[in-house]
Amino acid sequence: MITTLLNALVVGLIVISLVSIIRAYGGPSVLDRVVAINIITTNVVMIILIFAYLENSYYYIDVAFVFVLGAFIGTLCILKLLREGHII
């Protein structure tokens, strides 16, 4: 039962990410795109964790952790570039 539910959850998360690409493609400003990419990042982290349970290989949890940190640094760099005009 729980395996079927988790597979359906993965499909639903993929559909949600594809729907939020609409806002990332045609958003009026840059910050709309940043917000949409942030939502997609959270969905991808959830998909990685669910696959770590479904495949019984728990090393994927470390992959999800590194993914969260990388997405945070990327968003921070984009926002600093928008605010100050340079990154470093």
């Binding site: 639903g12 998360l13 949600i16 729907v19 939020s20 609409i22 949409a36 939502i39 959270t42 959830m46």
Partner: peptide, 9 residues
């Protein structure tokens, strides 16, 4: 999560 995406749209 779905409510967040609907609000985004």
């Amino acid at each position: 999560l779905a409510v967040g995406v609907i609000g985004l749209l």
